[in-house]
């Protein structure tokens, strides 16, 4: 026994260190995923007995117009939320200078990420308020009609995404600011000598060096878009008539809200959301793996 340990010490030790993490991760992440997948084949109100109904929940999803709307909104979120990445980059470039008091400006730009999403949601709800909101006061001043963004099915999702972009841009900005700190000054100097400035300097010299920051910014933004929930709950509650729901919110409504408690159906929605996320998670894991191998 002792000699076995001695001979394989280097192989076994990492697993011993990993064991607590693997145990927790399995118990609280992996196991519930399979539980949800299993639950999605049942009809269950959370109280009585579960009934096995096969793929019926999934068949119902295909015919559920609320589900289609939520799925469509999720796609809009994914695409538009990525605007936070270039916006964060430009905010970072703008703030990456040595002026008196720049730290104060940086803090102010970072502020929206520090405050709670609930506060962001409330601030934007008031901003959009049809009777007293700043947006409509401005519109009226310029002679436009007032518009209740959060009550219009065609605009509501965009209105919420705009609110979400505020803190997300700040987050991307911080990632880029730290990235800019590690940009090699010698390369910039070399670029200058070769007469690169402005856009060309940014595109060919700075951005390639910011690649790790861009990668992280894209990843957290995509995950943030798929998790979008709190802003929707605060600003509209999924309304008007369900037109601002996304999958995560719809799942919550079906499974846990006052009028829900269809656990199986909620689980089926969660599985669909998981599959969408898996596309991104798999891509990220694959890239990380490739990078590790490369080095």
């Amino acid at each position: 026994m002792y000699s076995y340990w001695k001979n394989n010490q280097l192989k076994i030790a990492p697993w011993i260190f990993l064991a607590p993490g693997i145990f927790m991760f399995s118990l609280y992440v992996i196991f519930p995923i399979f539980q949800s997948i299993n639950l999605s084949f049942y009809q269950w109100d959370g109280l009585g007995a579960k009934t096995y109904i096969g793929a019926e929940n999934y068949i119902e999803l295909l015919d559920d117009e609320y589900f289609i709307v939520s799925l469509k909104n999720n796609v809009i979120w994914l695409v538009l939320y990525l605007l936070a990445v270039p916006a964060g980059l430009f905010a970072a470039l703008f703030l990456n200078q040595t002026v008196r008091g720049i730290r104060i400006y940086k803090s102010i730009f970072f502020f929206p990420f520090v405050i709670s999403q609930v506060v962001v949601g409330l601030v934007f709800s008031w901003f959009y308020d049809p009777s007293n909101g700043l947006l409509n006061i401005i519109l009226e001043f310029f002679g436009f009609d007032t518009i209740a963004i959060l009550a219009e099915e065609d605009y509501v999702t965009y209105g919420i995404i705009a609110a979400g972009l505020w803190p997300q841009t700040a987050y991307c900005m911080i990632l880029y600011l730290t990235g800019l700190n590690s940009v090699d000054p010698e390369q910039i100097e070399a670029g200058r000598i070769d007469n690169a400035r402005g856009w060309r300097m940014l595109w060919y010299v700075i951005l390639p060096q910011l690649k790790p920051a861009t990668f992280i910014a894209v990843v957290v933004t995509i995950i943030g878009a798929l998790r979008s929930f709190d802003l929707i709950d605060i600003m509209t509650g999924g309304g008007p008539w369900g037109s601002s729901r996304v999958l995560a919110y719809y799942m919550y409504e079906k499974a846990f809200s006052e009028y829900g408690f269809r656990m199986g159906y909620g689980a089926a929605i969660a599985v669909v959301l998981l599959l969408i996320m898996m596309v991104y998670i798999a891509t990220i894991l694959y890239r990380l793996y490739q990078d590790e191998k490369g080095s």
Partner: peptide, 9 residues
């Protein structure tokens, strides 16, 4: 008869 923008309130 109903208040305008009621869906936002």
């Amino acid at each position: 008869f109903f208040l305008e923008n009621h869906a936002a309130l």
